[in-house]
Design a protein around this nucleic acid. Structure first.
Lengths: 330, 330
DNA sequence: TTGTAGGCGTTATCAG
DNA sequence: CTGATAACGCCTACAA
C-alpha cells in the first residue's frame, strides 16, 4: 500500500490515526522494507563501495576505519572488496559493484585506475585514493608523499647524516614512487652522494623491510641512516638491525612513513612522517558522498593531505636546526 | 527477453548462433544485469554481512582478510559494518543488513549476540565469531582461549617464574574472560600466589597495555613475568618497560596472545599464543556459506580454533621442560 | 530452441 | 488525505 510507504519514509501527508495504526502493525509484524525492491525503484542503494589493493597491515585498516565511520554517519553501508593485484581483477571488481553501490572509493596506487574509470564510462561517482592521477577529470585525494619524504630527508641531513639509504616500496606503486622522488630530490639538492646500493626495493611489508635492511648492512660502505618508505618496512628494518647487534639510533638511524598507530610503541619509538590515515578515509568518503548526493555539481576536486614530521627516538633526536614543520613527540 | 537471461546465467538451452549474437550485443552495450532487480526475484543478494565491534589493530584486519578471501572465492561480496559498542547499535546494524545479505558473520565478544540473534527471529543464517554462546542453537566459532592461556602460563612456570602478572582485556569481553580464567586456573593448580594487584584490566589496546605495565612496575612486589591478554597490550607493555629502563627478558618477561603479524618483529620478538587469525575468518565464512547454500541442513555446528605456543625471545627462551605443544621459533 | 506473461516488493503518479 | 495502478529490471514458468 502506498500509504505505508508514505509513513515509513515520511514522504507525503498522512492522517494521524492512519499513521499510528500503520506503525503499530509494522512493529508488531517486525516489518522491514525490502531493500532490493526499494533500490529497484529509487535507483539508490544506500551503499558505497570500497576497492582496496589489500587489507594487510594497520594502514589499510585505519583507512577503512575512517571510511566506515564517515559512511555510517551519513547513513551508508560499506561494500568492501580487496586484493586486486592486476588491472583485470580491479576492473572485474568495479563491474561487479555496478548497481550495488551509489558511489565508489577506489584506492589503487599500483594500477592505472583513472584509465580504468574513464574506460568504464560509468555514471557512478568515484573518488580516487592514492592514485596516480593527472588533471581535473576525477575526484581524487592524495597524500603529500613528495613533501613528507623531502622533509624527512632534510631532517636527517640536519642531524648530520650524509649516507642516507632508502627502502622503497614496489616500483609500480604511486605513493612509493613519489616518496622515492622526494628522497632523491633532496639528496641531489644537498649535494649528497647517491648510491644505487643504498636504494633497495621493498614491498611495504615488514618482511621486505627486514630483507632490505639486512642487505644494507653488508654493503661495503654502510649508510648511517635508513629511511623506509613506510612504517611496516621500518619496523622490519628495526628487527633486522637488532638481530645483527646494530644499535638504533646509536649506530644506525631508522625512520619510516605513515605513522601507523604502533609506530610510537616500537623500540625505539619510530620517527616517521605522520599521515592522518583516518582522515584520509574520512575525507575521501565525504568527497564521495557529496558527489553522490549533489549529482548536479559536475566539478571534480583534487585534494592533497598534508603530512608532518613526527620526531621520536629512532632518529636520535630532534637535532639542532629543527625545520619549521617538524614537531618533537615523546 | 528471457533468452538473454538464459545466456547470461547459462540456464536453459540456447541456440549457438543466438547465443553468439546476444553476447556480442551485451558486450557492445556494456550490459550488466541490475543486481537489485535480480535479487528481487531470486531472493538472493550474493553478499554476506560482517559485523565487527571495531576495526582497530591488526587482529581485525587479519580476520577480515580471511573473510574477504573466502567470500570472494565463493563469489560473494562483503558488506562490512563495525563499531557496535552496545546492544542497541548491534541490533540496529543487524536489522539494517536484513535483506541486503544472504548471511551474517557476527563477531561480538562484548555483547550477548546469541540473545540478539534469537530475538531477531530472522531466517538469515548467522555464524557467531568469538561469542559467549552456550548450547547448540547457533553456528559458532571460537578461539581456544582457555587452552592457549593455560599453556602459556604453564610455560612461564616451567621457566621458573612464580610471580606472574596478567593484563586482562575489558571485563565484558568473552575472549578476555576466558583467557583470564585460563591464567587463574593454572596459577591455582600450581599453587602459586595470586595477587589482585597483579591482575590489571586493559582494553586490548597498546595504550591500555602501556598503562597497565607502568602500574605493575611500581608495585611493592614486582612480578617477574607479564602475560598480556593480547599482543597489542603486550606491545604497549614492552614500550612501558623499555621507557623505565627495565630490560626484557632479562629483568621482566613479557608475553602476549594472538600472534598478530608484527609480533615477531618486536624488540625483543614477542613470545605469544598463536591464533590462525586468517583461518578464523576463513572458517567462519565457510561455515556461513555452507549454511547459506544448503538451507535444508538445519544442524548447527560449534567449532573451536586450536592455539599453539610460539616461543620467541621476549620470554627468555624455551626453558628446559618444553611442554608438548610448544615449539621454538626464531 | 525461443518468445510471452506474470510477479518479486517498492515507490511514484494520479484519481478520488 | 488516501487508495488504486503502473512502472523498476529481472527470472521462472509456460506456451509456441
Amino acid at each position: 500500500m502506498a500509504t505505508v510507504s508514505r509513513v515509513l519514509n515520511e514522504s507525503g501527508p498522512v492522517g494521524v490515526e492512519t499513521r499510528r495504526r500503520i506503525l503499530e502493525v509494522a512493529t508488531a509484524l517486525r516489518y522491514t522494507p525490502d531493500s532490493a525492491a526499494r533500490s529497484l525503484t529509487t535507483r539508490r542503494t544506500g551503499t558505497i563501495g570500497v576497492l582496496l589493493p589489500d587489507l594487510y597491515g594497520e594502514f589499510f585498516s585505519e583507512v577503512i576505519r575512517g571510511i566506515d565511520a564517515t559512511a555510517q554517519r551519513g547513513g551508508y553501508h560499506l561494500l568492501v572488496s580487496s586484493s586486486h593485484d592486476d588491472k583485470g581483477a580491479l576492473e572485474a571488481a568495479m563491474r561487479a559493484m555496478r548497481g550495488r553501490v551509489d558511489g565508489l572509493v577506489v584506492m589503487s596506487p599500483d594500477i592505472d585506475a583513472p584509465a580504468l574509470v574513464a574506460n568504464l564510462a560509468d555514471t557512478t561517482p568515484v573518488v580516487l585514493l592514492n592514485c596516480d592521477v593527472e588533471g581535473t577529470a576525477f575526484d581524487a585525494l592524495n597524500i603529500d608523499n613528495f613533501g613528507g619524504a623531502s622533509a624527512m630527508v632534510r631532517h636527517l641531513i640536519s642531524l648530520g647524516h650524509e649516507r642516507i639509504a632508502f627502502i622503497a616500496g614496489s616500483e609500480r606503486n604511486h605513493d612509493a614512487a613519489e616518496r622515492l622522488r622526494g628522497y632523491r630530490a633532496v639528496l641531489q639538492r644537498a649535494g649528497l652522494e647517491r648510491r644505487a646500493e643504498w636504494e633497495r626495493t621493498g614491498d611495504f611489508t615488514e618482511a621486505g623491510g627486514y630483507r632490505a635492511a639486512a642487505e644494507l648492512l653488508v654493503e661495503a660502505v654502510r649508510p648511517t641512516a635508513i629511511f623506509a618508505a613506510n612504517d611496516s618496512m621500518a619496523i622490519g628494518a628495526l628487527s633486522a638491525l637488532r638481530e645483527s647487534g646494530v644499535r638504533v639510533p646509536e649506530d644506525v638511524v631508522v625512520v619510516g612513513f605513515d605513522d601507523i598507530p604502533i609506530a610510537r610503541y616500537m623500540s625505539p619509538p619510530l620517527t616517521t612522517v605522520h599521515v592522518a590515515i583516518n582522515e584520509l578515509g574520512e575525507r575521501a568518503t565525504r568527497m564521495l558522498l557529496q558527489a553522490v548526493e549533489e549529482k548536479n555539481v559536475q566539478v571534480k576536486v583534487q585534494e592533497t593531505l598534508p603530512t608532518t614530521l613526527v620526531i621520536r627516538q629512532s632518529c636520535g633526536g630532534c637535532g639542532s636546526p629543527v625545520s619549521a614543520e617538524s614537531r618533537c613527540f615523546r
